[in-house]
Design a protein around this nucleic acid. Sequence first.
DNA 1: CAAATAACTGGACCGGCGGTCAACTTATGC
DNA 2: GCATAAGTTGACCGCCGGTCCAGTTATTTG
Lengths: 192, 192
Amino acid sequence: MAERADAARNRQAILRATEELLTRLPPEQISMERVAAAAGVGKGTVFHRFGSRAGLMRALMQERAMVLQEAVVDGPPPLGPGAPARERLLAFVDGVIEVVSRNKGLLAALDHAEAVVSAKIPDDDPPPLHAIWHRHIAGLLHEARPGLDADVTAHLILASLHSDPIQRLVVTGEGAARVAAGLRTLITGVLD
Amino acid sequence: MAERADAARNRQAILRATEELLTRLPPEQISMERVAAAAGVGKGTVFHRFGSRAGLMRALMQERAMVLQEAVVDGPPPLGPGAPARERLLAFVDGVIEVVSRNKGLLAALDHAEAVVSAKIPDDDPPPLHAIWHRHIAGLLHEARPGLDADVTAHLILASLHSDPIQRLVVTGEGAARVAAGLRTLITGVLD
DNA sequence: CAAATAACTGGACCGGCGGTCAACTTATGC
DNA sequence: GCATAAGTTGACCGCCGGTCCAGTTATTTG
């Protein structure tokens, strides 16, 4: 017996409710009880499904990022395999920004949640998004410019998306474009 | 009556205690009661002095950054006025990394604290560090390369110091050096 | 040196949080 | 239809950031 139908329905209800709350409120005002109420379920159910606040945010982020992830592993170039590393990298950061911009406050909520003392990440969970993204970026960086400290550089690139001011910029249309342009400049600068 | 002697003594005790706790524990395990206990004062005293958790962290950070700040406004080049913008900028980010690396977890603690709903920042407080740093970086960027979106780029550069992985790197000796080198590469790349 | 006073102190207290749990309900496979 | 594993729930727990005020103490003033 894998996952019951009602359970799946509730999972969706909780995710959608969280999403909706995230568009209306700053992350620290979104308590788990509030999420539960908005989803029309008991608090216990939320924890049963997602384990913790961090787990809920992670699941939501993962869901949002899946499309991007699929496009990366077997979509058409320039995002997918086939294009030169430089183009793939630029396309990828655009994609990441798009995902992030659709989720005002999600990244921040994630941070806040992850900060909790060494949260136990169940072994059967998919690896955290950050790790996947970092690996992808570092790989492309290394391919495009072997001399570089790809590991650190990838962290620096990803890190720039956290931080409140950038988040605030990204949630507005032109802001996201400016951030994307800025990141591209940074990356092309380092690749040439 | 400005500030009583015993009050000043307690302020120091609290700051030192916080500092000490930050070297031993992750920020989310450092409650205000714990700080108070470690400093040998009552919890009320801590709040009376610093207003909030954010205020305490900000004060500590400010204290740490003061040396850098002074060097920037009227120290010798390349940090202070006189050197070309490019050199000043590179020296500055080195300085920032040094400050940050001396305070494992402080930045994270600050973030966590600042996240609280629009914390009332008393008017007589110095402007937040982030703002000062951002203005300095953006100014130098603009001077060194007028075409650039200095505002966004400065945010991206500063933002990269937040985020857990970078923090973890920075607290170790070689890690800090790698991060500094990575940042320099990013910046020189964008300036040329 | 007192007396007056304003600043400082501390800890009981508050609302709310994330997370747990044991009793109860329900979908599902046979 | 029935057994049972899975799901659901809300009262409950410990803790946290922040408030408050009665009591204490450094400082100023005459």
